[in-house]
Computed example of a mutant assay.
Amino acid sequence: MGFARNFASLAVGCALWVASCATGLAAKDKDAVATASGLPVPRYVSLKSDHVNVRAGPTKDQDVTWIYTRSGLPVEITAEFENWRRVRDSEGAEGWVYHSLLSGRRTAVVTMKNKDDLAPVRDRADPSSAISARLQAGVVATVRRCNEGWCRITGNGFDGWIEQQRLWGVYADEKVN
């Protein structure tokens, strides 16, 4: 009985993966695909908890492949199946998470142009504005808003504007209000 259920879960997971790959390619277009939740895919969300199980497929019968331990980490939803969301993180890892462990709160991870680079946070959305902080790669920030290539971010000890291209967790030229 257990083998049949696991085999059925694996078959469902594989079928969903194939279908979601096709929709994932189409969803990269400007007009994202609406899903069971009524929300577009792909889209960015964040982790609600500091303990989030990531599973191999969209059921509790699937193995936990790893556990996120950082609340607020941004992830991209790439597919949905009932109450399950397939997510991808900033390192490209993918797996299935139960929907209630995700939040619509927008966060982003600071990325770098060069290995030893620090990302400047400015007082205003202007490259000539004063620098109020410099952030390392991997810093997670709350995204307050984005417009015209700049995002206002806040976090532990900083509040200011950063070039949108320096963040993973917002799409290029996405407007966030």
Rank of each mutant, 00 (worst) to 15 (best):
F3E: 13
F3Y: 12
A4G: 10
R5L: 14
N6E: 01
N6L: 08
S9V: 11
G13V: 01
A15H: 13
A15K: 14
L16I: 15
W17C: 03
V18F: 06
S20M: 11
C21Q: 08
A22H: 10
A22V: 15
T23F: 04
G24F: 05
L25Y: 09
A27L: 06
K28Q: 11
D29I: 07
S37E: 08
S37V: 03
L39P: 00
P40T: 04
P40N: 10
P42K: 04
R43I: 07
Y44R: 09
H51D: 13
V52H: 00
V52L: 06
N53P: 08
R55G: 03
R55W: 05
R55I: 11
A56M: 10
G57K: 02
P58A: 13
K60I: 11
K60P: 07
D61H: 07
D61I: 03
D61Y: 07
D61L: 13
D61C: 05
D63T: 13
V64G: 10
W66L: 09
W66P: 01
I67T: 14
V75D: 01
I77P: 01
T78K: 05
F81N: 13
F81P: 02
R86Y: 00
V87G: 03
V87I: 14
R88Y: 11
D89W: 04
D89R: 08
S90C: 11
G92S: 08
V97Q: 02
V97N: 01
H99V: 00
L101I: 00
L102A: 07
S103V: 03
G104H: 06
R105G: 10
R105N: 09
R106L: 15
A108W: 03
V110R: 00
M112Y: 01
M112I: 05
M112L: 11
M112F: 00
K115M: 13
D117T: 04
D117N: 10
D117C: 03
A119N: 06
A119Q: 12
P120C: 10
P120K: 06
V121W: 03
R122W: 02
D123Y: 06
R124G: 04
R124M: 06
P127A: 12
S128C: 05
S128E: 15
I131Y: 05
A133M: 08
A133N: 11
R134S: 14
R134L: 14
A137Q: 14
V139G: 08
V140C: 05
A141G: 09
T142R: 12
V143M: 06
R144H: 05
R145W: 08
C146L: 06
N147A: 07
G149A: 10
R152Q: 15
I153V: 15
G155L: 09
G155Y: 07
F158Y: 12
F158T: 12
F158C: 08
D159A: 13
G160R: 07
W161P: 02
I162D: 00
E163K: 14
Q164D: 09
Q165K: 15
Q165I: 15
R166Y: 05
R166C: 09
R166S: 08
W168E: 06
W168S: 12
G169W: 01
G169K: 05
V170T: 14
K175N: 12
